[in-house]
Design a protein around this nucleic acid. Structure first.
Length: 742
DNA sequence: GACCTGCTGCGGCGTG
């Protein structure tokens, strides 16, 4: 048997695969191995190194990893080795289980899915005979360490590979730190470094990804990067000027429709979408759950109005699993057109079939996110990827602020598309300390091993683990803090055990996730759970509600059961959700500056968009914003920083510590008090690192991550700064701005 | 105005 490699030389990799796998490939009717697959086989088949496979979506990454991995497992009959596959999503585990089971069934290799929705019987079966492929989430793996510490050696003794899917989704977050720590702990249980395999969409900085996969040995990670497909891209940004609602809200009006109370320009956008999207599958990203509900309702109404069956389905994290699956099914089914109005829930790799175009409402949260979204479109060979953006800009009047004058949202969209076309996107932010997750891992290791010494914890988590930026005094202070809160107690011999409070924390299932979530009310209609809303945004009886793509009225709120009961009705508006907005990167703000300074026409704007950009450029030029960075506007001193939010936020913190009322206003930072700004900037530029740390004391609520409440105050402040502020950047900026004053 | 992800063990009840 032989097979062509892509590029029509004979495939040598094919010959390396197990005969049963080669037979499976023939039966599937493959005529060649894709580039990434061809290169992955020799890298993985001996299980002797760490590998990253980075390739565009749908390039066959899963098979690239598993064909050689399974070939390796098949060297023993019956199969006695195992593979640990870690995924960020339960839905992805379910998808991958179907794909792998189809292949593994014929090979007599068991495939076990293990997450919160899987029965304990199936899990038990794997523990009894731990061979084959285990598909698991980081949280379920954490639970294994906490509740099955004594049997881990038996469970993972024959482990040959650890595969991490959607690697990029983990880098830079609490969950990423947890994953790194768990992988380290797996190695320790096995008494050797188990080869790691990272799967990802093309990552910008491969060194960063390698360093995440195998800290301290990144140089030994083999990188398999499969180039872009050279796919055609079609982009259009449509500009709109906001128009007031048809009806100003008055209590007297009976049941106004949503289309009457939202800005008329929003209805215009929705109507245009219906016109161009109907009849095909699309993804619509309006940036927030509230806007998702709003557009889902407007689009559904427009279909009803025109006498078509509905083609638009909502999808976001506060919808129940049933409603989300309904939307996924509609997209996948393929028997009639369906589009999802969604948040980042549909950005990751769950299987939703082919999508014709991607629609972005308002500026995207980041270039990386825009890129990921666009990767969902035009996946069939020869099809272009299509991006449609809608930007609604405020009507400008004499009192308008700078952001409106400069058409910030539209300019940000243009800047982000420019950067996308140039191949740039935000690198993951790796500077975060995440001591909150360190606390979780300390408590977890104590559960796993039935107690641990401070030295053992230091060794596993800091010296050879992912928390390398933590120094000894900080580590000791964290342990002392845990002791003071009765989370830890120390035995006479020095062994650390859980205190009463620690025991309670670890023995509850909420312990396993490294990230925190808000308290929520469930929304229930009859016997059906529709989803949830944050407790911080209460609903009251009688209120109309748009949710899950339909209209409801609140009948009753049971605060004890934390449940809101609704019945179908007309009218109402979508609920308000909580959530942190994403931060804009320095490079995006720099590009926005260039877009405004430039006179060059932007080819992917429509007529209104071009007019709006020209307006903004005229304002930019007539106020000499290309050269002036300090000026007054509407009674405030404006510092035009054109920096990202990490620098802007840090500058605000430092100005406030100087006693000035400052706030971050997007591309600029506004400072209210004139006159003394220059002195303040000069003082800020000269601050020592310990003085900038001191300035952090002025920040109020900095409990950011799940176990921050267990941390000493200054550790918490450092953690906050490492994640959200760029102090050195802000000081350099202050120096520049000080010289620009007057 | 502002995203997302995840979760065990056991008691109680009904059914074969």
């Amino acid at each position: 048997m032989s097979l062509q490699a892509s590029g029509s030389t004979e495939s040598r990799s094919f010959d390396l695969l197990d005969e049963r796998i080669r037979r499976w490939i023939w039966r599937e009717g493959w005529t060649e191995l894709r580039d990434a697959q061809e290169r992955a086989v020799p890298a993985l088949i001996e299980a002797d190194r760490d590998v990253i496979i980075a390739a565009a979506t749908a390039a066959g990454k899963t098979e690239a990893a598993f064909l050689p991995i399974l070939s390796n497992l098949l060297r023993d009959t019956p199969c006695s080795g195992s593979v640990l596959y870690i995924s960020p999503l339960k839905a992805l585990i379910n998808d991958q289980w179907s794909r792998l089971d189809n292949l593994c069934d014929a090979l007599e290799i068991p495939v076990t899915g293990w997450h919160g929705d899987v029965s304990s019987g199936r899990k038990q079966r794997f523990v009894k005979k731990p061979t084959g492929v285990l598909l698991i989430t980081p949280e379920s793996l954490e639970a294994m360490f906490v509740t099955r510490g004594a049997s881990l050696e038996a469970t993972f003794g024959a482990l040959r590979y650890v595969v991490v899917d959607e690697l990029h989704a983990f880098i830079g977050s609490e969950r990423g730190m947890q994953l790194q720590s768990l992988m380290r702990r797996v190695d320790r249980v096995c008494g050797r470094n188990v080869p790691r395999v990272g799967l990802s969409a093309t990552l910008g900085d491969m060194r960063l990804a390698a360093d995440f996969l195998r800290p301290r040995k990144a140089q030994d990670v083999q990188i398999i990067e499969s180039g872009s497909t050279g796919q055609e891209l079609k982009i259009l940004i449509k500009g709109y000027v906001e128009k007031p609602p048809r009806i100003q809200f008055e209590p007297g009006i009976e049941n106004p429709g949503l289309e009457d109370v939202v800005p008329a320009s929003t209805v215009e956008v929705a109507n245009h979408m219906v016109k161009v999207l109907r009849g095909s599958n699309n993804l619509i990203f309006p940036n927030s759950r509230r806007q998702v509900e709003l557009y889902a309702d407007l689009l559904r109404r427009a279909c009803e109005r025109d006498g078509y069956p509905n083609e638009f389905w909502p999808h976001h994290g506060s919808l129940s699993k049933e409603l989300r699956e309904q939307t996924e099914q509609a997209l996948k089914a393929g028997d009639r057109p369906a589009s999802a109005v969604c948040t980042t829930t549909l950005e990751l790799g769950i299987d939703i079939g082919a999508v014709k175009s991607v629609v972005q409402v308002g500026a995207p949260p980041s270039v990386a996110s825009l890129r990921q979204r666009l990767g969902r479109s035009g996946r069939r060979k020869g099809e272009a990827a299509i991006l449609r953006c809608y930007d609604v800009e405020a009507e400008v009047h004499s009192g308008s602020d700078l952001s409106d004058r400069l058409r910030e949202s539209l300019v940000q969209s243009v800047a982000m598309v420019n950067l996308l076309l140039r191949g740039w996107f935000e690198p993951p932010r790796e500077r975060g300390m995440h001591p909150s997750t360190l606390v979780q891992q300390i408590l977890s290791i104590i559960a796993e091993r039935g107690g641990a010494s401070a030295g053992e914890l230091w060794d596993t988590l800091v010296a050879t683990g992912p928390f390398g930026t933590v120094d000894k005094p900080t580590f000791a202070a964290i342990l002392r803090g845990l002791g003071a809160k009765d989370l830890l107690v120390q035995e006479a011999g020095g062994l650390l055990l859980h205190g009463v409070a620690g025991e309670r924390l670890v023995n509850h299932y909420e312990f396993y996730a490294s990230f925190s979530t808000d308290d929520e009310f469930r929304i229930v209609a009859g016997a059906k759970v529709l989803g949830s809303v944050p407790v911080s945004r209460p609903l009251s009886p009688g209120q109309g509600l748009v949710f899950g793509g339909q209209r409801w009225r609140v009948q009753d709120v049971d605060a004890g059961k934390k449940t809101v009961y609704v019945t179908p009705d007309q009218g109402g508006v979508p609920p308000v959700f909580d959530g942190g907005g994403s931060l804009v990167h320095d490079e995006v703000r720099r590009e926005m500056f260039n877009v405004l300074k430039d006179g060059a026409p932007v080819v992917f704007l429509d007529t209104t968009g071009r007019e709006l950009l020209e307006e903004a450029r005229r304002y930019f030029a007539s106020n000499e914003l290309a050269t002036r960075s300090v000026f007054t506007h509407g009674g405030s001193t404006v510092l035009a920083t054109w920096s990202g939010d990490w620098i802007n936020d840090a500058l605000v913190v430092l100005l406030r510590a100087e006693g000035l009322d400052a706030w971050n206003q997007g591309p600029t930072v506004s400072v209210r008090v004139a006159g003394s700004v220059k002195d303040a900037l000069q003082r800020i530029a000269a601050l020592t690192p310990s003085q900038t740390k001191e300035a952090l004391r002025a920040i109020g609520n900095i409990d950011n991550e799940k176990w921050d409440w267990t941390l000493p105050d200054d550790v918490k402040r450092d953690a906050y700064a490492s994640l959200r502020l760029d102090m050195p950047g802000a000081q350099a900026l202050a120096r520049r701005l000080a010289t620009a004053c007057e």
